[in-house]
């Protein structure tokens, strides 16, 4: 089990900016529980994410990975325990929810770009209307991020005219335009054809290199090994095991983790 999947990019990761803060907490989850009706989907979740951490969450389908990260920007509501993001506790107070969402970017499996807006309009909508950035400035920032995800020439097109990989890169750029302090990724590459996975992962790696705090639900174990500083394994709504990637892959402790890894790493 020591031989894990191949690296994502054939280069060394530039770790100069990748320090994990020892003191500053980005996300604190304490004794959190969530139910869908009678179904106890998340059970006693405790998790502290420091500023600058890159966390990969893995686990079998239905284990609650999506639900967990969707609780962090309150796309799902938790019923018990606390979630504190950037020092703001999530409650039913809508103003606080909006405050948290402004600082937390999210990338979805199915991109969820706005099909009726051009790429540029997709990127500038929230900065203009949520942050109050002047249009010209917002467009300038948007072009900068499109440049970063290497598709500035697509600015005037509509999402439907782009490939899946391009759409996902636009979705990442759209989140970045809000200048978030935390990025959440929910299986960003699992709806993509294999040849497009890499271009998206490269963008995510470059984000990590800039010191972004990231939580990624993904089955890309190569990405986890190269970039993550912590891997969390979930099953049946619980955190079963977490460790540094090297130790996690080479020396899993829990039976479930071993079984899961043996299945996905063949």
């Amino acid at each position: 089990m020591s031989d894990v999947s191949p690296v994502v990019v054939d280069r060394d990761i530039d770790t100069t900016n990748m320090q994990v803060s020892k003191t500053e907490v980005a996300i604190e989850i304490i004794g959190m529980n969530k139910w869908f009706g009678d179904f106890h989907v998340l059970r006693d979740i405790n998790l502290r994410v420091m500023r600058g951490e890159r966390i990969v969450i893995a686990g079998p389908s239905g284990s609650g990975k999506s639900t967990l990260i969707r609780c962090i920007n309150r796309l799902e509501e938790h019923q018990k325990g606390q979630i504190i993001v950037n020092g703001v506790e999530l409650t039913s107070d809508l103003r606080r929810v909006d405050e948290v969402r402004r600082e937390v970017g999210m990338v979805f499996q199915h991109f969820n770009l706005f099909p009726h807006l051009t790429i540029l309009q997709n990127l500038t909508l929230a900065p203009i209307w949520v942050r109050g950035v002047p249009k010209a400035k917002a467009e300038e920032t948007a072009m900068m991020y499109l440049e970063r995800v290497r598709i500035p020439e697509q600015a005037g097109k509509y999402p439907g005219q782009l490939s899946g990989g391009q759409q996902q890169r636009v979705a990442i750029a759209r989140s970045l335009c809000m200048n978030p302090r935390i990025m959440l990724f929910d299986e960003p590459t699992s709806a993509l054809d294999p040849e497009m996975v890499k271009e998206v992962l490269e963008v995510m790696i470059s984000l990590a290199e800039e010191g972004m705090t990231m939580i990624c639900v993904t089955h890309e174990m190569g990405f986890a090994r190269q970039v993550a500083n912590r891997v969390i394994f979930m099953d049946q709504g619980q955190i079963i095991e977490q460790n540094e990637p090297e130790a996690f892959f080479s020396n899993p402790q829990h039976e479930r983790t071993k079984l899961f890894l043996s299945q996905i790493l063949h």
């Binding site: 969402r101 969820n112 770009l113 706005f114 909508l125």
Partner: peptide, 30 residues
Amino acid sequence: IGRGQYEAAQALGLGYWRRMGFVILPQALK
């Protein structure tokens, strides 16, 4: 309109009226 559109707009921090006015209604009316 799929749930993903509402969620993407929410995740960007757009409030109810902006979510509806800029994201949901233009598509729904179309």
